[in-house]
């Protein structure tokens, strides 16, 4: 464990907590894409298949349980909670995420480290996570006023993978531990997708103006 990876995990955890706080306290999911939340639930479900078979550490298991529990409960809240679901802008959140899932599945079957069920599912989860934010970014561009919590959520979610890239560099340099090039490229694509959001978010924060993404 190194500082980049720990801060990456904590940033990821913070993003989930910010989102849960928004949904649970103000009972609103305005501006949040259910499609992105469903994709993240899929990411964790396919990445943590080995949660009970391969024990890595207590920390690892606890964090996996937290990510699984929170991602599925957010999807449940947005779909079934009688108050929260009313604030879900269904008409705007129209990204057909099946068009993301299928190509990721095909790619995972073709480009993977080892052709085993677990490894293909793990690779699939990497590809899905790389593009999972797209429905949310599309929704942000459609909904004019982005509230602070939603902006913070997306920022933290993007920052965590950027910290993971630093972690991979650090581990390669110090532990001679390499992560597969699939992980590198997926992580890079994922972080680059946030590039313009980061630009507008940091600018709005510096100029202390409301976050507005160009249409």
């Amino acid at each position: 464990m190194n500082i980049f990876r720990l801060s990456g995990d904590m940033t990821h955890l913070m993003s989930v907590i910010v989102l849960l706080l928004k949904i649970h306290t103000i009972k609103s999911c305005a501006g949040i894409s259910l499609k992105t939340q469903e994709l993240y639930a899929l990411v964790f479900a396919t990445r943590y298949l080995d949660i009970f078979t391969d024990f890595v550490s207590v920390y690892n298991t606890i964090m996996k349980l937290i990510f699984l529990a929170t991602s599925f409960s957010i999807v449940w809240y947005m779909r079934h909670h009688k108050i929260v679901r009313r604030s879900y802008d269904k008409e705007q959140d129209t990204f057909r995420h099946l068009f993301l899932i299928l190509p990721c599945l095909i790619l995972a079957l073709v480009v993977n480290e080892k052709f085993t069920f677990k490894e293909v599912m793990w690779t699939f989860s990497l590809y899905v996570e790389a593009v999972a934010i797209l429905p949310q970014l599309v929704l942000l561009q459609r909904t004019k006023n982005i509230d602070n919590l939603t902006g913070q959520y997306v920022f933290l979610l993007g920052a965590y993978r950027a910290l993971y890239i630093l972690n991979w560099i650090y581990r390669y340099l110090t532990e001679k531990h390499f992560v597969h090039w699939i992980t590198w490229i997926s992580g890079l694509v994922q972080t680059l997708l946030y590039a313009d959001f980061f630009y507008y978010y940091i600018n709005s924060w510096k100029n202390n103006v409301r976050l507005q993404l160009p249409a």
């Binding site: 990821h12 080995d50 972690n167």
Partner: peptide, 10 residues
Amino acid sequence: EEEEDHHDEL
């Protein structure tokens, strides 16, 4: 000898 990635990360 570089160690294989055993997916010990989240």
